[in-house]
């Protein structure tokens, strides 16, 4: 694989993982859990919130790795 492609592929994988985590059977599985509590939030809510936070981190890394979209 060409080196420049790596950040694009990684970001694509992360985006797909986020989508899978938030809809369908995986969301149903994680969303059915109340424990463990995370910072006082039930697991089902913390799950959705963490993926939002994760998307911020992923986008920031992707932006840096691709030199702001120019690479």
């Amino acid at each position: 694989m060409r080196r420049q492609l790596i950040p694009h592929v990684l970001f694509g994988v992360w985006f797909a993982a986020t989508a899978i985590a938030l809809v369908g059977p995986v969301a149903e599985w994680a969303g059915a859990r109340i424990e463990p509590y995370v910072l006082g939030l039930p697991f089902s809510l913390a799950w959705s919130a963490c993926w939002a936070l994760g998307m911020f981190v992923a986008l920031a890394l992707y932006y840096r790795a691709t030199d702001g979209g120019r690479a």
Binding site: L22, A27, S44, L45, S48, A52
Partner: peptide, 10 residues
């Protein structure tokens, strides 16, 4: 209501 968080993320 968690759907609101989910669609905003994606």
């Amino acid at each position: 209501s968690f759907y609101i968080l989910a669609f905003g993320t994606l």
